[in-house]
Amino acid sequence: DPAGASDGRLADLTARLASDSPRQRVGGGPFTASGLRGEDSLRFPPWLEGEWRVESNIVAAAAPLGRKYLPTDLARLPLGDLRSRSPPLSYVVRFVRRDSDGSIVSDREGNLRASQNAAAGFSRVDDVIYDGSACIKVRYSEYGRNNTYIGPSRAEVYINSRLQSAPDAASDTFAFSETTRTVLLGASRSVSVSDAETLNLFTRAAGGDGLARQ
């Protein structure tokens, strides 16, 4: 059960995130994305419940195997130390209490919309539909920055597996990773497929603030 994760998983995830060259986890093992009666099995600690104003700073980017392996939407991302080149992104995310079992879960639809719009610098996302388990469908605006027509596009994000620490109210630290496959259907019937693992670490700070690293 992903929600019954031990502190050993927290140590593993924290060590991988701190590594200069973390290796992507392959395969889902027992930590599948849809293991809780068809509901989102990623559960957060109670202290994350509510609405959070995010100030996100991109520290660095690397492509050890070359740009050809980057997904289409990141193909032009500058590489190296980006602390002086990338202004902070500001947006709001929410973690809500699920009616069915009282678990704290991510507002995946709203949070994806907020983060991708902030990264794009305009209202890029037209619509988001999450099936409640392991698939997120995104439809993008046909118009880009300055209302320039860029054509229709959409994406399907499949959550293949995850690993998480226990969502313990007494612990000031929580971590998880998810492996995903994204199918991007662009203009002129172009198709690109990318696989990724995203590692996240949340730390409860004094004064009700929080720190996060990805």
Score class of each variant (00 low, 15 high):
1 D>I: 12
3 A>G: 11
3 A>W: 13
7 D>R: 11
7 D>M: 05
10 L>F: 09
11 A>M: 08
13 L>D: 04
14 T>A: 15
16 R>T: 08
17 L>S: 11
18 A>P: 04
18 A>H: 11
24 Q>D: 01
25 R>V: 08
26 V>E: 12
28 G>V: 01
30 P>W: 03
31 F>L: 09
37 R>Q: 15
37 R>L: 13
38 G>Q: 07
40 D>E: 14
41 S>I: 05
44 F>M: 14
45 P>N: 10
46 P>F: 03
47 W>V: 06
48 L>G: 05
52 W>F: 08
53 R>V: 06
56 S>A: 15
57 N>I: 11
57 N>R: 15
57 N>W: 12
58 I>F: 11
60 A>I: 00
61 A>D: 09
63 A>S: 14
63 A>Q: 05
65 L>N: 08
66 G>F: 06
67 R>L: 10
70 L>R: 11
71 P>C: 07
73 D>I: 07
73 D>W: 13
75 A>P: 00
76 R>F: 11
77 L>W: 07
78 P>I: 09
80 G>C: 08
81 D>Y: 09
82 L>S: 10
83 R>H: 06
84 S>N: 13
85 R>Y: 04
86 S>L: 05
90 S>T: 14
92 V>I: 13
93 V>P: 01
94 R>K: 15
95 F>N: 03
96 V>I: 12
98 R>L: 03
101 D>A: 08
102 G>N: 06
102 G>D: 04
103 S>I: 01
106 S>R: 05
108 R>F: 02
109 E>K: 09
109 E>Y: 00
110 G>F: 02
114 A>L: 05
114 A>H: 05
115 S>H: 03
115 S>G: 12
118 A>N: 07
119 A>M: 11
120 A>S: 14
120 A>E: 08
124 R>N: 01
126 D>F: 00
126 D>E: 14
127 D>H: 10
127 D>P: 00
129 I>Y: 05
130 Y>G: 02
130 Y>N: 06
130 Y>T: 02
134 A>G: 09
136 I>W: 02
138 V>P: 03
138 V>I: 15
140 Y>P: 02
140 Y>L: 13
141 S>Q: 04
143 Y>M: 06
143 Y>N: 05
144 G>C: 08
146 N>Y: 10
146 N>P: 00
148 T>Q: 14
150 I>E: 13
152 P>S: 13
152 P>D: 04
153 S>E: 02
154 R>T: 02
155 A>G: 15
155 A>V: 02
156 E>G: 01
158 Y>D: 08
160 N>F: 00
161 S>G: 13
161 S>W: 11
162 R>E: 09
163 L>H: 01
164 Q>S: 13
165 S>D: 03
165 S>A: 12
167 P>D: 07
167 P>W: 05
172 D>E: 14
173 T>H: 10
175 A>N: 10
176 F>I: 05
178 E>W: 00
179 T>N: 08
183 V>S: 02
185 L>T: 04
186 G>P: 03
186 G>Q: 03
186 G>E: 03
187 A>C: 02
187 A>R: 12
187 A>G: 06
190 S>W: 00
195 D>V: 00
197 E>H: 03
197 E>A: 04
197 E>Q: 13
199 L>R: 15
200 N>Q: 12
202 F>W: 15
203 T>V: 15
207 G>V: 10
208 G>F: 07
211 L>A: 15
212 A>F: 15
